[in-house]
Simulated assay, not measured.
Amino acid sequence: MIIVPEKEIAGLMTRADAFTAVEQVFASMSNGGAYNFPVIREAIGHEDALYGFKGGFDKTGMALGLKAGGYWPNNLAKHGLINHQSTVFLFDPDTGKVSAMVGGNLLTALRTAAASSVSIKHLARKDAKVMGMVGAGHQATFQLRAALEQRNFEKVIGWNYHPEMLPNIEKVANEAGVPFEAVTLERMVEADVVISITSTFAPSIMAHHIAPGTHIACMGTDTKGKQEVETALLTQATVFTDEVAQSISIGEAQHAIAAGLIKQADVHELGAVINGTHPGRTSDDEITLFDGTGVGLQDLAVAASVVKLAIEKGIAIEVDF
């Protein structure tokens, strides 16, 4: 078995590598070459933590496995650790024998940012100039770095429940040479692309906060009950997702579906756009919404890439297991 510790990930996985891995696995999911297993995600009744498993099998890339982990909201304050903790396990598809254990914290951040970035590439208007961020936590910095590489953005605007955290994303914008302005939610209407990355159970973004022609990536809703945007927005947008089954059950579409505002058929795979079987955006006035629920196949794709690189660079730890 190969072990790639968390401390080695930063030197192995780049944003470009994560983008390629996620784009390819979305395409495989859409053409039937890969599928996810049902998600298990539960409140454990200790430390307010959410814990679970995401897994799947990518027959195209021959990646089989799962990610185990979750969200410990008290980690940073109590232990100086990031709140999201996870590990990826890979198995040999031919024998079922465990083949790798990979630190999943940075990989999760990179693959989540890659997913929204892939959606921007394929769905946002080509002339998008203003980038809007709703959320300014740890994951938001990864989201913004990846997003700024997809269009020639001239300005970043941001809002957060805790305004004192906005310097996190302001620093990223400044590093990219793009001016930043803290705004009210009402001013998100000025953005051409919006990424929402919060952990709320009540919507922050209302339909009137999003202008015609905007692409919005909702990246925070990955659990039953969570919600970042008003359900009415999904009726005004063309909705895309990583996986339809997750979108309608634990993703942003769960609430609009439950309210009878949209149907399952109204939620489309982003992979279909990548493969060319769905046209994607069809006009400059169309609102496109990507519901990024986070699928296990994303984790397997980036982990498999990391294992390969670790072996090539001679830093993989091999153990007899």
Rank of each mutant, 00 (worst) to 15 (best):
residue 186 E to C: 09
residue 153 F to N: 08
residue 223 T to Q: 13
residue 205 I to K: 00
residue 166 L to A: 05
residue 207 A to D: 15
residue 185 L to A: 10
residue 210 I to A: 11
residue 190 E to C: 12
residue 122 H to K: 05
residue 126 K to F: 10
residue 173 A to K: 02
residue 189 V to D: 14
residue 145 R to N: 07
residue 160 N to L: 01
residue 218 C to E: 13
residue 148 L to N: 05
residue 208 H to P: 13
residue 126 K to E: 15
residue 216 I to H: 04
residue 223 T to R: 12
residue 137 G to F: 06
residue 157 I to E: 06
residue 186 E to N: 13
residue 171 K to P: 02
residue 143 Q to Y: 01
residue 164 E to S: 13
residue 212 P to H: 12
residue 226 K to T: 15
residue 121 K to E: 14
residue 225 G to P: 13
residue 134 V to F: 08
residue 163 P to I: 01
residue 155 K to E: 14
residue 190 E to Y: 04
residue 112 T to E: 09
residue 186 E to R: 00
residue 126 K to V: 06
residue 157 I to H: 02
residue 200 T to S: 15
residue 137 G to H: 02
residue 154 E to C: 11
residue 211 A to L: 11
residue 215 H to A: 14
residue 117 S to C: 07
residue 119 S to V: 09
residue 107 L to P: 07
residue 157 I to C: 04
residue 224 K to I: 15
residue 208 H to Y: 12
residue 144 L to D: 08
residue 145 R to Q: 08
residue 145 R to P: 03
residue 162 H to A: 10
residue 222 D to K: 06
residue 116 S to H: 03
residue 134 V to E: 10
residue 170 E to K: 01
residue 170 E to R: 00
residue 137 G to S: 05
residue 163 P to D: 12
residue 127 D to A: 11
residue 205 I to T: 10
residue 128 A to F: 10
residue 167 P to C: 03
residue 116 S to E: 11
residue 172 V to L: 03
residue 149 E to A: 12
residue 205 I to L: 13
residue 196 S to Y: 11
residue 151 R to W: 07
residue 166 L to R: 00
residue 221 T to W: 07
residue 148 L to V: 01
residue 144 L to A: 02
residue 209 H to G: 12
residue 123 L to A: 04
residue 126 K to P: 10
residue 195 I to L: 12
residue 139 Q to E: 13
residue 118 V to Y: 00
residue 169 I to K: 00
residue 198 T to H: 05
residue 183 V to A: 04
residue 188 M to F: 11
residue 154 E to P: 08
residue 221 T to D: 14
residue 151 R to Q: 06
residue 186 E to M: 09
residue 133 M to E: 07
residue 164 E to R: 03
residue 210 I to N: 10
residue 176 A to F: 06
residue 168 N to Y: 02
residue 194 V to T: 09
residue 181 E to K: 06
residue 174 N to A: 09
residue 159 W to H: 03
residue 203 P to C: 15
residue 164 E to T: 08
residue 223 T to P: 13
residue 181 E to A: 10
residue 165 M to W: 08
residue 195 I to G: 02
residue 203 P to G: 14
residue 188 M to L: 14
residue 194 V to E: 11
residue 200 T to H: 14
residue 144 L to V: 00
residue 156 V to W: 01
residue 157 I to P: 07
residue 109 A to W: 05
residue 143 Q to T: 05
residue 165 M to N: 13
residue 129 K to R: 12
